[in-house]
Amino acid sequence: MTAFAQQLIYGASYGMNLAVAAAGLALIFGVYRVINLAHGQLIMLGGFVAYVVATQLGTHFFVGFFAAMIVMGLLSIVLENAVFRFLQRRPLTDQLLASLGLYMVLGTTALRIWGDFEARPIAMPGEDWALTAGEIRIDGARLVTIAITLVLFASLYFVVYRTHLGRTMRATAQGEETAALMGIKKRRVAAIVFFLGGALGGAAGAMLGALFNVRPDMGFQPLLMALVIIIFGGMGSIAGSIVAGLILGILYNLTVFYVGSKLGDLVPFLVLLAILMIRPQGLFGLPDRNA
């Protein structure tokens, strides 16, 4: 029972990080209708920005964390302007191929700059202590990332559902042309959505990098998980991302621990298959009325 509880905690902590990564992807898809595979590399680059600012420049973790969010938000706007705005009305395959190309370009660039041999730690608050209850332990650093995640989601919820900016985003998501007729500037909304999506990717990268070291291939597994999470949670649903992230993180850990270490990566895809068969709109999505 102790082992089970411990895996629940580890899984919830990892799942929360994945949920942040997925929320960025979900936000961009929800409003802009583009699946951005390059998001995995924004996560990785976010880790590197946090490493450079916090570790190499010797500042506090949170300085690196916010730098990662801002830089990745801005990079995301650049990508929207340079690539995605030309793909918005193109078939899904074009979007996927273009974003896959970006994924490879960004990944190769990072490898060329930083290589893969070195380990790049980021000092994080809480890494030297842990809460224990009997044989169960919760690392301080994991608790800090959970707290950051909750703050990020609360902020995101506030922005999307309690501000004028959020209303313009939701209006654009519901009907781009109608929103434009109401005076909402499409390009401005796109820039904001991509900034927020990229910033969430950067935040996920900074947290994952601080917990597990920064490395050029660190965006791959979170990207795979994030793709499943946004389908599982309901395409474009932020609340869905949180719930699906938690479930997937816990399932991943329980599978590794109880079934087999090699089978952890199988879980997301089994979940994906099940969801597509049983509830294609995901946990929080609405059925596609056009289907």
Binding site: A3, Y14, F212, D217, F220, Q221, N253, F257
Partner: peptide, 20 residues
């Protein structure tokens, strides 16, 4: 043998399996 997949980010469950 605990054999973690390529691209593993969080090693906690794998090490937990080893520790078990």
């Amino acid at each position: 043998a605990v054999l973690y997949p390529f691209g593993t980010t969080d090693f906690a469950p794998h090490v937990a399996k080893l520790a078990e």
